[in-house]
């Protein structure tokens, strides 16, 4: 995949898709989107970088080890659950500290809380999991290519 166009495009596309994935994740509670979709989209962004610029560039772009990202994600889902447990005594109960319910039933404020933390955990697990396998597969395929010639 030594295409100049693809390489150049991927440099531009990576931040673009990443911003899009975070946006998709953020609006997921009220519009189509969410952690699963956002995570997949982010993973596609890194897959694109990997195909265009190679494994090392993709690893560098991701910055953290994919396994660590997935682990942090799992931690976020658990923390998101515990937050509800500590606030209301029910594991995974939604806590929205920045949202106020108005008397007429509508609400104002920032949609930030335990559920978003939980969904962000899902985002990270999907991103980390997919990238982890992708990098490993690419690594193995690239390096074993030479060993196996016999």
């Amino acid at each position: 995949m030594n295409s100049l166009i693809l390489r150049t495009a991927s440099r531009l596309l990576l931040p673009l898709i990443l911003v899009l994935s975070v946006f998709v994740f953020w609006r997921g509670h009220n519009e189509p989107g969410g952690g699963f979709i956002g995570g997949l989209l982010a993973a596609i962004a890194f897959a694109l970088v990997e195909k265009a610029q190679g494994l090392e560039a993709a690893r560098k772009a991701l910055h953290f080890r994919p396994q660590s990202i997935a682990a942090v994600g799992l931690g976020c889902t658990v923390l998101g659950g515990l937050w509800g447990a500590f606030a209301y005594g029910y594991f995974l109960k939604g806590v929205w500290p920045l949202i106020e319910k108005l008397p007429d039933g509508s609400k104002t404020g920032l949609p930030f809380g335990s559920i978003m933390l939980f969904d962000f955990g899902v985002f990270l697990v999907v991103l980390g999991g997919v990238c982890g396998i992708l990098f490993a597969l690419e690594d193995v395929v690239a390096n074993e290519r030479d060993d196996k010639e016999d």
């Binding site: 699963f36 999991g129 997919v130 396998i133 490993a136 597969l137 193995v140 395929v141 074993e144 196996k148």
Partner: peptide
């Protein structure tokens, strides 16, 4: 979730297939 999990399963099977061939 089934789609994402199915993808995970497929990728694992792919890794197995690749490794078993090797």
């Amino acid at each position: 979730t089934a789609i994402v999990i199915g993808f995970g399963l497929l990728v694992f099977a792919l890794a197995l297939a690749y490794r078993s061939y090797y």
